[in-house]
């Protein structure tokens, strides 16, 4: 089974304090740690498990700057066989639609049975790339996948619905599946894997290699044009307890006492 995984190198922001940069259209990146998008971590693990079971190859693809080599190396170290990075200044400002077109321009000429990507990326959260890619390739897709089972020419997947409910759907191969977090337990990179990955090549392609025109990528080729970023207004902000941990703890206990909760 030949698998393509579309991954993204993103800043980790869940635990960080975020500031908007001077352009007003992006966040201040200095001081942030970058790593593989959380969803893609599960994508990669799922691909490796399928490869271990059925054989075949894994190709990791990303559209990003050179810095994403670190994440591509991680993919190679964990079991990807090939890595492709699409890098061009003209790609800047691409939304999910433009990214999907860029990915499609390369993937359409590659052999594959299965394409896996994350449900979304933790930075822009568009939640569109996988299914747009499927539509451009003229193949089927399924999203928010929590379990994959192969039955001859179909894939049986569990899709996550709301409130803990799931649905089971059968989709024909070849297929694009977008993977939900929690589908597996991603493994750590082994020292052997890192050594092997050092020897593998990262293929770098630019706009010219994609055969796309300038107007099809970047802001010009996007559905969305970003006007401004801002920190959401705090309309109902909490009342804050201040002081040393001991003082704060006392204030919380007093509050709980006054509400009859302890």
């Amino acid at each position: 089974m030949d698998i393509i995984v579309c991954i993204k190198h993103v800043p980790e922001t869940a635990e960080a304090e975020i500031k908007i940069d001077s352009s007003g259209k992006a966040i201040e990146k200095t001081g942030l740690v970058f790593d593989i998008n959380e969803w893609d971590d599960y994508v990669l693990e799922e691909a490796v498990r399928i490869k271990e079971k059925f054989g075949g190859t894994i190709t990791a693809i990303t559209v990003n700057t050179e810095e994403s080599n670190r994440t591509l190396r991680k993919c190679l170290a964990r079991g990807a066989d090939k890595a492709i990075r699409l890098t061009d200044a003209k790609f800047e400002g691409s939304d999910g639609y433009a990214i999907a077109k860029i990915l499609h321009s390369v993937i359409k000429d590659l052999p594959f049975d299965l394409i896996l990507t994350g449900v979304l990326a933790s930075d822009d959260g568009y939640t569109v790339v996988g299914s747009i890619l499927a539509e451009l390739l003229g193949i089927s897709h399924s999203t928010m996948v929590k379990k994959i089972e192969f039955i001859e020419s179909v894939v049986r997947v569990n899709r996550e619905l709301e409130g803990g409910l799931e649905e089971i759907v059968e989709v024909k191969l070849p297929v694009v599946l977008t993977i939900q977090t929690g589908i597996n337990e991603p493994r750590y990179v082994s020292i052997m894997g890192i050594r092997k990955a050092m020897k593998k090549e990262i293929k770098v392609l630019s706009l010219t290699d994609t055969g796309l025109s300038e107007s099809e990528v970047g802001e010009a080729g996007s559905w969305l044009i970003i006007n401004e970023l801002f920190i959401p207004p705090m309309d109902k902000r909490a009342e804050f307890f201040l002081g040393t941990p001991e003082v704060i703890a006392t204030k919380i206990v007093d509050l709980l006492k006054s509400r009859g909760l302890i």
Binding site: D235, A238, F241, E246, L255
Partner: peptide, 29 residues
């Protein structure tokens, strides 16, 4: 993170290291 969205919904908030606050709180209770 003082800008964590959770503080938009919380009645009361503490911007601090949970590993300091939780033990203190347990002690006080």
């Amino acid at each position: 993170d003082p800008n964590a969205p959770i503080f938009n919904f919380a009645n009361y908030g503490v911007v601090d290291d949970l590993f300091k606050i939780v033990p203190s709180l347990k002690e006080k209770i």
